[in-house]
Amino acid sequence: MQEIRKKYVIPGDHIADGNFKNLLNAVEISNKIYATRVGIAEVGMDGAKVIPLSGIYIPRVGDLVICKVIDHSAMAWELDMNSCFSGHLPAQDVFGKEFSPSHDDLTKVFGIGDLVACKVANFDRSRNPLLTTADRDLGKIDSGEVVRVSPTRIPRLIGKRGSMINTIEQNTHCKIIIGQNGIVVVSGPSARDILISVKAIRMVDEGAHTTSLTQRVKDMLEGSTSGNIG
């Protein structure tokens, strides 16, 4: 086990000296490593990185994202990904190879304002992200409460091997769909259960940089399900 030093940083903070193979949210200038984001710096044997606490969502291939349909042409939908890029969902992805703009009506599938769970199929620096709905659990989301969190908090909301999200789901019996882009949809058996889930998600959003968060969320959930909502 290598020793990892953690420290709160802001851009321009000096986090280490020397050469590191892997740098994430950090820059090397004359053999000194500086943070480029507000976040938590981790310096290990081979890498120095800053886990950011703010910033917009930058798409990555394979990410599950929850998007809002904002426009469509005869051939494709345009989706708001809560990012600096808008997503492109071609009609073929839904209608298949036989798709014909004269026969198939895109608005019958996804209308403007609909929320759609998608996967990022392709993305590079030169074009807008290509989305797909062709996988299990993807497609239009028909019900639930929409919660927006900072995309930087998503890893914490999921937790180690899903520990955080499992804790919330098990205690509230809610189903929570998490988009890597910071859009979360909660559906559940009752308004009260949804309310408690949303409260837990807000706790993670606000306290992502703090320690023993899972325990505190657990305490809140157990307190709430057995009695009052604090």
């Binding site: 851009p11 321009g12 480029t36 984001r37 507000v38 950011p52 606490l53």
Partner: peptide
């Protein structure tokens, strides 16, 4: 700009 989480070499 730092608050917005835009990568910066320095303030």
């Amino acid at each position: 700009l730092a608050d917005a989480g835009i990568n910066m070499r320095d303030l």
